[in-house]
Amino acid sequence: NQASVVANQLIPINTALTLVMMRSEVVTPVGIPAEDIPRLVSMQVNRAVPLGTTLMPDMVRGYA
């Protein structure tokens, strides 16, 4: 089972991601792999991401 990136807090739209906003968790469906967390830092979300939501590739500008 692969860990995915999950929002550690509410992340408002257009917010640049920081390490404290994300955690890794084994979830279904699988989202962005946890090993990509360092790559996600400073990328912006293109929608509001509620606490506990799995980050999907289409939620992060420039990721996919």
Score class of each variant (00 low, 15 high):
residue 38 P to H: 12
residue 11 I to Q: 01
residue 25 E to M: 04
residue 34 A to Q: 11
residue 11 I to K: 00
residue 36 D to Y: 12
residue 39 R to F: 15
residue 33 P to C: 06
residue 24 S to H: 10
residue 13 I to R: 05
residue 19 L to F: 10
residue 57 P to K: 11
residue 19 L to D: 05
residue 31 G to T: 01
residue 40 L to F: 02
residue 33 P to G: 09
residue 57 P to M: 07
residue 14 N to P: 00
residue 40 L to I: 13
residue 31 G to C: 04
residue 25 E to S: 06
residue 16 A to I: 09
residue 11 I to E: 00
residue 2 Q to C: 11
residue 57 P to G: 11
residue 58 D to Q: 07
residue 29 P to R: 03
residue 37 I to F: 03
residue 2 Q to P: 15
residue 25 E to C: 06
residue 8 N to R: 07
residue 45 V to S: 08
residue 64 A to Y: 03
residue 16 A to Q: 09
residue 44 Q to D: 04
residue 16 A to D: 10
residue 10 L to K: 07
residue 31 G to K: 01
residue 56 M to D: 05
residue 6 V to R: 03
residue 17 L to D: 02
residue 8 N to Q: 09
residue 43 M to N: 06
residue 30 V to Y: 06
residue 56 M to V: 13
residue 37 I to L: 13
residue 54 T to M: 04
residue 52 G to L: 05
residue 28 T to G: 10
residue 35 E to K: 06
residue 57 P to V: 07
residue 60 V to I: 11
residue 58 D to G: 09
residue 17 L to K: 00
residue 59 M to P: 00
residue 53 T to D: 14
residue 51 L to Y: 09
residue 13 I to G: 15
residue 40 L to P: 00
residue 28 T to D: 15
residue 58 D to K: 05
residue 34 A to I: 11
residue 14 N to E: 15
residue 25 E to W: 04
residue 25 E to H: 06
residue 20 V to P: 08
residue 10 L to I: 10
residue 8 N to F: 05
residue 59 M to K: 02
residue 55 L to D: 02
residue 56 M to K: 05
residue 34 A to C: 15
residue 59 M to A: 10
residue 39 R to N: 05
residue 60 V to N: 02
residue 18 T to A: 12
residue 42 S to P: 02
residue 62 G to H: 15
residue 56 M to S: 14
residue 12 P to R: 11
residue 57 P to E: 08
residue 50 P to N: 12
residue 59 M to H: 13
residue 24 S to L: 06
residue 19 L to E: 11
residue 24 S to V: 13
residue 18 T to V: 11
residue 42 S to A: 15
residue 54 T to N: 02
residue 1 N to L: 10
residue 26 V to T: 12
residue 43 M to G: 03
residue 21 M to V: 05
residue 4 S to V: 02
residue 57 P to Y: 06
residue 40 L to H: 00
residue 52 G to W: 07
residue 51 L to A: 11
residue 52 G to C: 07
residue 3 A to C: 14
residue 50 P to G: 12
residue 23 R to A: 12
residue 56 M to C: 14
residue 31 G to R: 02
residue 54 T to H: 03
residue 22 M to F: 07
residue 6 V to A: 03
residue 28 T to E: 15
residue 6 V to Y: 02
residue 3 A to P: 07
residue 37 I to T: 09
residue 12 P to F: 04
residue 20 V to E: 14
residue 47 R to W: 11
residue 8 N to A: 08
residue 45 V to Q: 01
residue 39 R to D: 03
residue 54 T to V: 11
residue 43 M to S: 06
residue 27 V to L: 10
residue 39 R to S: 09
residue 37 I to C: 04
residue 61 R to V: 15
residue 33 P to W: 13
residue 22 M to Y: 02
residue 46 N to S: 11
residue 52 G to P: 01
residue 41 V to L: 11
residue 14 N to S: 09
residue 34 A to D: 15
residue 54 T to A: 06
residue 38 P to K: 14
residue 30 V to H: 14
residue 30 V to S: 11
residue 10 L to V: 10
residue 28 T to S: 09
residue 47 R to A: 14
residue 30 V to C: 12
residue 8 N to C: 05
residue 44 Q to R: 07
residue 11 I to T: 01
residue 52 G to H: 10
residue 33 P to V: 13
residue 64 A to K: 13
residue 44 Q to G: 04
residue 63 Y to K: 04
residue 49 V to E: 01
residue 21 M to C: 03
residue 27 V to A: 10
residue 1 N to I: 15
residue 1 N to P: 15
residue 24 S to C: 05
residue 56 M to P: 01
residue 2 Q to Y: 09
residue 26 V to G: 09
residue 12 P to N: 13
residue 2 Q to H: 08
residue 63 Y to A: 04
residue 59 M to D: 14
residue 60 V to P: 01
residue 63 Y to L: 14
residue 31 G to S: 03
residue 11 I to P: 01
residue 30 V to M: 15
residue 5 V to M: 02
residue 28 T to L: 05
residue 58 D to H: 08
residue 23 R to I: 10
residue 55 L to C: 02
residue 50 P to F: 10
residue 1 N to S: 15
residue 22 M to C: 03
residue 41 V to F: 05
residue 7 A to E: 01
residue 64 A to S: 11
residue 4 S to Q: 02
residue 45 V to G: 01
residue 1 N to D: 15
residue 13 I to A: 12
residue 21 M to W: 02
residue 12 P to L: 11
residue 40 L to M: 09
residue 10 L to T: 13
residue 32 I to E: 00
residue 60 V to M: 04
residue 36 D to W: 05
residue 8 N to I: 06
residue 52 G to M: 14
residue 38 P to W: 11
residue 42 S to F: 09
residue 5 V to H: 01
residue 26 V to R: 03
residue 17 L to S: 00
residue 22 M to W: 01
residue 21 M to E: 02
residue 7 A to W: 02
residue 19 L to S: 10
residue 56 M to G: 05
residue 13 I to Y: 15
